[in-house]
C-alpha cells in the first residue's frame, strides 16, 4: 500500500469508528429527516405525494439533513488538533479531503437507507421508484459530499461556523438539486415509473460530481497551510 492509501484508510476508519462509538451525527440526521416528513405532511396537507411534489419534499429534506452532518464533519479535527496532526504527517494533504468526502458519502448513504424507505412508506403508493432512485441518490451524494467537505473545512475555522455551511453550501448545490429533483420526478409519477430524460440528468449529476471532486482535490492543499 502506498502511504497515501494507508493514510486514507486510517482517516476514514477513524471517522467511521468515532461516529459508530459516539453516534453524534447520524441519529440526529435521520431523526431530523423523519420529523421533516411529518411537517411536510401537514404543511402541504397531503397524505400521499407524487411527481414533482414528492421529489421536492424528498430532496429538500435530504439536503437539510445533510447540512447537519456537514456542519459537524471537521469539528473533531478542530477541537482535538487533527488539523495539526495532518500538517505534521508526511502525507499528501489532499488525502484528508478524499477520506472526509468518502466518510460523508457513507453517512449520507446511511441516512438515505433510513429516510428513503420511511418516505416511501409515508407518502408513495408503490415502491417501484426506489431501485432506479439508488443511482440518483448515489450520484447526488458524491456531489454533495465534495462540495460539503470543501465548505465545511473552511467554515470550521471561522467565527460563524454553524452559519457558514448552510449559507454558502445552499446556493452552491442548486444545480445539483435541479438535476436530482428533475431525475427523481418522473420516477415518482402516479402512473408508474417513467424514465423521461433520466440519462441526461444523470450526466449533469456526474458532471457536477466530477467538477467539485477535482476542484476540492486541487484546492484543499491551500486550506491546510498555516
Amino acid at each position: 500500500m502506498t502511504p497515501s492509501r494507508t493514510a486514507f484508510a486510517a482517516i476514514l476508519g477513524k471517522d467511521l469508528r468515532a461516529e459508530l462509538r459516539t453516534l453524534q451525527s447520524l441519529p440526529a440526521m435521520a431523526l431530523f429527516a423523519v420529523t421533516s416528513f411529518v411537517i411536510f405532511r401537514f404543511g402541504l396537507n397531503r397524505t400521499s405525494l407524487s411527481g414533482s411534489l414528492a421529489a421536492g419534499v424528498l430532496w429538500a429534506t435530504l439536503l437539510f439533513a445533510a447540512v447537519l452532518g456537514i456542519n459537524r464533519l471537521f469539528v473533531a479535527e478542530r477541537e482535538e488538533g487533527g488539523f495539526d496532526a495532518i500538517r505534521l504527517a508526511p502525507i499528501d494533504r489532499s488525502v484528508l479531503f478524499t477520506a472526509k468526502a468518502t466518510a460523508l458519502v457513507i453517512y449520507l448513504a446511511a441516512l438515505e437507507l433510513i429516510a428513503v424507505p420511511i418516505f416511501a412508506v409515508f407518502f408513495l403508493n408503490s415502491a417501484a421508484a426506489l431501485p432506479p432512485l439508488i443511482i440518483v441518490l448515489l450520484l447526488a451524494d458524491i456531489g454533495l459530499a465534495s462540495a460539503g467537505t470543501l465548505i465545511s473545512s473552511m467554515a470550521v475555522n471561522s467565527r460563524a461556523r454553524d452559519l457558514l455551511v448552510p449559507l454558502v453550501l445552499l446556493p452552491l448545490v442548486v444545480p445539483l438539486m435541479i438535476a436530482a429533483t428533475a431525475a427523481t420526478e418522473p420516477l415518482m409519477l402516479l402512473g408508474g415509473v417513467s424514465y423521461h430524460r433520466f440519462g441526461t440528468w444523470l450526466m449533469v449529476l456526474g458532471l457536477y460530481d466530477l467538477i467539485f471532486a477535482l476542484l476540492g482535490y486541487a484546492v484543499f492543499d491551500f486550506l491546510l497551510e498555516d
Binding site: L207, F212, E225
Partner: peptide, 24 residues
C-alpha cells in the same frame, strides 16, 4: 486564502449553474 478558494469554486460553479438551469 479561503476567499480565493471561494472565488475559484464559485467561478467553476457559474457555467455549471447556467447549464442546469437552462436544461430545466
Amino acid at each position: 486564502r479561503y476567499a480565493s478558494v471561494f472565488a475559484i469554486t464559485a467561478g467553476a460553479f457559474v457555467p455549471l449553474n447556467f447549464l442546469a438551469v437552462r436544461m430545466s
